[in-house]
Nucleic acid binder design. Sequence first.
DNA 1: ATGATATATATCGTGCACGATATAATCGTT
DNA 2: AACGATTATATCGTGCACGATATATATCAT
Lengths: 154, 154
Amino acid sequence: METAEPDLSAELLALDNQLCFAVYSANHAITRMYKPLLDRLGVTYPQYLVLLVLWERDSVRVGEIGERLMLETNTLTPLLKRLETLGLVDRQRSPQDERRVIVSLTDKGRNLRGEAARLPERVFAASGCSVPEVQELRGALVALRDRLRARSGE
Amino acid sequence: METAEPDLSAELLALDNQLCFAVYSANHAITRMYKPLLDRLGVTYPQYLVLLVLWERDSVRVGEIGERLMLETNTLTPLLKRLETLGLVDRQRSPQDERRVIVSLTDKGRNLRGEAARLPERVFAASGCSVPEVQELRGALVALRDRLRARSGE
DNA sequence: ATGATATATATCGTGCACGATATAATCGTT
DNA sequence: AACGATTATATCGTGCACGATATATATCAT
């Protein structure tokens, strides 16, 4: 016999034992929960994330949005153009540094914040979690993410 | 004054306080960690998930793969065709019920399992988590996901 | 047997995500 | 001043994800 643990290998590869699939499927479930709520605002979930960044601090570079959301410009550029088409943001080159494109909220984009403010609460209610549970889960995920990111860069 | 808690609203919408973004960004980090490992097997992460299903039980309907991965056929059909083009699976109509398409592993697809068996361990090592931590995190995510799915259907 | 309904998969269009590459502006060194 | 390297954004091609719709088979009521 070459190997004495056929079960260990099967256990390791079982879908329901995989943390990665738990994260993957939870992400889809959350996105689907947000979908009908965001439809009413007329934006997609990644677009909503960009708005969260801008509602915190307006008029930032494309690259800075990318750093916060951990996305590349090849994702953000077309997304930001759609937000511009929707009339929610403006994009203009920085006069100081013509390489930079500054993204800023329009009045319409700023006003959307009021409607969006209700969303996290509604998703929280659907989650069935307590506040400490959510915080612990979030903390564990962020810690995991940051460790993986540190290892990926090596 | 209409509202006395401008800070509460800001807190709720802060990117770094959002569980949804923690899940979203952790998912990306995990996918990026898998990417170079899966490149060597010649498959993408969602394709790998399909293979996990088939390695557990071979020759299943498209719809059953969809149920396990929580994906629709509009995602799976083209993905399965790519796996077929890669020579990893076969797709054939069920003789009993001509509506069904049965997906089964080729020898090549079966053989890939040996190489894939090392992956979870390597990602686990990069996670920096202990086994109980991973299990708790996975359990919390699955519970959250299933509650959200139950609420979404309402 | 026949038509209505349900089931299983496929197709189409849009948007996200990313590797690879391109383009243009800036900076540093000489 | 000039040139190479770096920085910031954009473009292109591929694959995933999903809503809407289509198609074909199966089932059920009559």
